[in-house]
Structure formats: C-alpha cells, structure tokens
Simulated scan of single mutants.
Amino acid sequence: MNAFRLDNKTVLVTGASSGLGAHIAKVLARQGAKVLLAARRGPQLAEQVDAIRKAGGDAAALSMDVTKPDSVEQAFAEIETEHGGIDVLISNAGVATEPRKFIDTDEDAWQFQLQTNLSGAWRVARAATQQWIASSRPGVVVNVGSIYGLRTGVLKVAYNVSKAGVVQLTRSMAMELVRHNIRVNCLCPGWFLTAINADYFATESGARYEKSIPMGRLGRLEELDGPLLLLASDASSYMTGAELVVDGGMVHKAI
C-alpha cells in the first residue's frame, strides 16, 4: 500500500479554491504530498491552505487563471523558482453554465466552458510537461474529466464537448509523452454532492434524477479518494492514456 503514498512529491492542483479541487488537495496532503493550490480566488485559496497546514500538511497558494496564457506562464515560473518544480499535476479547473438548449447556447456560454475546461487543461499541461522535459524529470498528469466526456447529456452541449476534448487530450498526450517518462490519465466522475449542486438535488426533480443513477444515489467526495490516489501515485505506474470512471454505473446505464 506504500505505492499510494506521495511523500517527497510536489503536486499542483488547479481549481483548488473550493469544491472538488479543495477536497483533492486535502487528500493529497494527507498522503504526504506538498500541495500547491492554484486558482483565481486568493482569499478562498488562503483558507484552504490554512486548513491543510492546521491539519499538519504542507501546502502553498498559487495565483493562476487557466484561461490566460500570461497567468499560467507566470505561475509556472514561480513553481520552478520557489518550489523546485512539481512531480504531479491534477488538472481540475472547470466550469459549467446553467442548463440550456443547443440553439440557445450563445458565444459567451460556449467560450466560457471551452476556454476553462479544455483550453485551460491543455495550457496548464503543456507548461508542466515543458518543464519536465527540459529537466529530464518524470511526471504524472491527472486530467479531471467527466462521464459527459464519454456519454452525452441534454442541455449541456458546451460542457459535453469540452469534457470529450479532455478525454482526447489525455489520450493524445499519453501516447506522445510516454517516451519522456510522463504518464497521463483521466479521472471521470459522475454526480457527486457538492455545494454547487446541493440546491438542485434537494428539489423533487433532483431527487428523481438521483434515483435514476444505477446505484440509486449520488457519490460522496471521499469515494473519489482511492481512484484519485491510484492515478496520482506510483500505484498506477503501468497506466497511461486511461479513463477511470467513478459514477455509480451511470455511464453504462441502459437508455
């Protein structure tokens, strides 16, 4: 079980100021990693870093907007000079808009999701791998995708396309980077209860949707911990280009 440990590893988590990203950062810190939490929201980042440190973990905040090339470039310059580089990238930054029909999806909604979910993942992974290759350093990338990158869902065309792109990005990176000792895999969650969706799942419609999941319930964030640690650690040393689905059976649900 020591293969799941992350002692002496520095891990960058994007989108870490709240929700899944903040949870991921805490899980990695408990496994011995030094965690760099990156996001746009400084005060929220500081709160998460403080919580990790109070629990005995090693963490630092990093200002980064994945939609802006200059912000990513500056962040990785700081990573190199202040932290000596990273060993693992958890590319988690992502957004979604309210449900809307395809014909009602405007330019702003389309670009908002594609720029963060797909272009942001590409931009950050490219910066990380450039540093690794330049220093002949091995690396691990875990792209956080979604079951909607593997199946479709109505009223979320931009989100679906962005996450399908993340899956293909993962596969393409994996095949090109394996010769540099860089592994790339994709974690594909289904529906997990978070602050963002709690109000919806408290409604009658949300309760019906929850019952439609083959396991009959939403996932709990801690149920992502094992799959996350598998992909982030040496426990997955013979895995690259894979999609690891954690969704209560939703992606294989018969229609």
Rank of each mutant, 00 (worst) to 15 (best):
A207M: 13
I182G: 00
F76S: 09
P214I: 15
S91Q: 07
N8V: 01
R126H: 11
F201E: 03
A77V: 13
G153M: 06
V124N: 02
T10A: 09
G190E: 10
L218D: 10
S63M: 15
S233L: 10
V178N: 01
A198R: 11
V161G: 09
L224A: 13
E80Y: 07
N160V: 11
T170D: 00
K253A: 15
S146L: 03
L229M: 11
V178M: 01
R220C: 10
P227I: 11
L177Q: 00
V245Y: 06
V88I: 08
F112R: 01
A22K: 12
A29W: 06
E243L: 04
E223C: 15
N185T: 01
A198S: 13
D50T: 11
C186F: 03
K34F: 09
K9L: 12
S162N: 04
D65T: 00
R5Q: 14
G241F: 05
G206Y: 04
I90S: 06
K26Q: 12
T116M: 01
E98K: 05
A59R: 06
H83T: 03
L155F: 05
V95H: 04
A46H: 08
K156H: 09
Q48K: 09
I103Y: 06
E223V: 15
I147E: 13
G19W: 07
D234I: 08
R151H: 06
D104Q: 03
E73F: 02
D234C: 05
R30Y: 05
H23E: 07
K156R: 13
V251M: 12
N185S: 03
D58S: 14
Y238M: 08
E78D: 10
M173A: 02
F112I: 01
G219T: 14
A93P: 07
L62I: 12
S237W: 09
W191G: 04
E78F: 09
K9H: 11
A121S: 08
T116F: 00
L244G: 01
G219R: 10
G165D: 00
I133T: 12
A164L: 04
G165F: 00
N181M: 01
G241W: 08
V154S: 14
V27H: 06
D225A: 14
L224E: 13
G21R: 10
Q131T: 11
E82P: 10
R171A: 00
K54R: 12
I52G: 07
N8K: 13
M1H: 04
L114T: 06
R151D: 04
G219I: 11
W191Y: 11
N181S: 05
